[in-house]
Computed example of a mutant assay.
Amino acid sequence: MLFLFRNTENQRGYANQGSGEPPVLLNREIPRYLTERNFRQALTQPFSASWSNVGIRAILQRIRETQNISIILDRRIDPSRKLKIDLQNQTLEQGLAQIADLIQARCIIVGSNIFIGPDAEVSKLKTLLQLKSDALHELADSQNTLKSRVIQLSRNHTFHFQDLDKPAEILQNITNSYQIKIDNEQLVPHDLWSNFSLVSVNATESLSLILIQFDLTYEWAGEATGIRLAAVPDKVLIKRTYPLPGKSIDSVTAQIKEQFPDLVLTSSGKLLSVQAAMDVHEQIEQLLNPKKTVHPVRAGGGKTVPLNRRKFTLRVKKVPVLAIMQKLEQSGIEFEYDKQELVEADINLLQLIDVAVVDAEADEFFDALFSSFKLDYKMQGVKITLTPQK
């Protein structure tokens, strides 16, 4: 998909012409934004556009409408700030990242949404999302009776909001959908927001996307039926342990310390534990396992190499299998399954797993990936079809 749009002070453009802001509307038509695989594919499509002296909100609204994707602008960013930008022959994701960079912000994908916010807050959001997801699954592991509740909270919902909706009401809409009670909702200040959508998000994602904009987070209460709001700490860290087979602990520690001198590292045998933000963990993982990131492999004529002709290397600890699947989809692998069928079979793709394979054949790799689940998989070309075991 190629999007060409010109908007300058001397040309007719979007909404009110020239540099005008989109009008306030209280009854916008509900958009039909792309979700999941279609959303991720849209981000890789060619994108060209140009604006001069146009507000950020108008630019993002135009991209939403033409590309059919959900974009959320953090409330701390001035939406009327004017930009001059020329994007040529980039992917849509690269174009959005460049727009964010111009306003000293950063993009992150959450569910089927692009969230644009201040860099430090986006870093905290990434870590908080993982911490809250981990906490939820640890709760289920400690109390077997809560597994069905965790599955309920892991289901994706889509929410649409109009101009001038209040964040307290938006939060209430989300908590009602998941049957969650907020213990101290008075911490959410009064505000009026522009229209936006939360597309294909679970409870953790939807709550965090709203609360982070007020420097708030939450703790699960009761049997995951309530939350208590709390201020986001100055530092949001998560502990990860890395196996180091065949590597020297001292040399690896020295490498990491050179890049991140303030990190606290602890080791035990061939295991290295690190407490850091998710951004740092991603860089450490890449440093330790440069082959981990799965890139598209193309054969002659531009065709994707079939799975049975690929080799896979992956080392991860306590990562949702769905996150790994989403990463694999970026390399052209397709996963086909019936969400409701998996839910009814008590199969939760947000379950955390450990995988350690090196230069593995496809069968070995996917056996390791799905060994914790009562799932059958079938490979055909680049497609994996998942079905519950009978």
Rank of each mutant, 00 (worst) to 15 (best):
G302E: 10
K257H: 12
E93Q: 14
D141N: 12
L34I: 03
L136H: 02
D363A: 14
Q330C: 02
P118A: 09
Q213F: 04
S206P: 09
E364G: 10
P79A: 08
L25W: 03
R149Y: 08
E138D: 14
D346K: 15
E65T: 10
N184M: 06
N195Q: 13
P118L: 07
D134W: 13
I116G: 01
S148T: 15
L136M: 15
P388M: 09
L342H: 02
L4F: 10
K378H: 14
K124S: 11
I69A: 01
S154K: 08
K247S: 11
G117W: 00
S142A: 14
I324D: 05
K374D: 15
G301R: 08
I108N: 02
S194K: 12
D262T: 14
K339E: 15
N27K: 14
I353S: 07
Q286N: 13
T304W: 07
R62C: 09
P79Q: 08
L216E: 01
F335C: 04
Y242H: 09
Q259F: 01
Q90I: 10
I256M: 03
R155A: 11
E121Q: 12
V343A: 12
T158V: 07
G18T: 10
D359N: 15
S48R: 04
K291V: 09
P243R: 09
M278S: 13
T241N: 08
E364D: 15
V382P: 00
K126S: 12
A323P: 00
T313D: 05
F260N: 06
L25T: 14
M379A: 11
V343L: 12
K292G: 15
D119F: 00
N289Y: 15
Y242P: 07
L272P: 01
R81K: 15
E185S: 15
T66W: 08
R62Q: 11
D74R: 05
I249C: 01
A221K: 15
R106M: 10
L209G: 05
L136E: 08
T217H: 04
E9N: 14
L386Y: 06
E329R: 12
G117N: 01
E364I: 13
D234A: 14
M278Y: 03
I56Q: 06
A105F: 04
T387P: 02
I116K: 01
L43W: 03
P167G: 04
I256Q: 02
K181Y: 09
R40W: 06
Q380H: 14
I72P: 02
V201H: 02
D191L: 09
L229C: 05
Q17I: 13
L139S: 12
K303F: 06
S52G: 10
K383A: 14
G13R: 05
L263Q: 05
D119R: 13
N10T: 13
F373D: 01
G332H: 02
I71H: 04
Q162L: 10
V343H: 10
Q389P: 00
P79R: 09
N7G: 13
S70F: 06
F214E: 03
K84M: 06
N184S: 08
W51T: 04
N348F: 00
R57Y: 10
S206E: 06
W51A: 03
Q152P: 00
K235D: 14
P31G: 07
G13C: 06
L237P: 02
L349C: 06
K378A: 12
K318T: 11
L207Y: 05
T225P: 00
G20V: 08
S248C: 08
A230T: 14
S268Y: 07
I77K: 04
R149T: 11
L125K: 04
G111D: 01
K82W: 01
Y218P: 02
E282G: 08
Q11V: 13
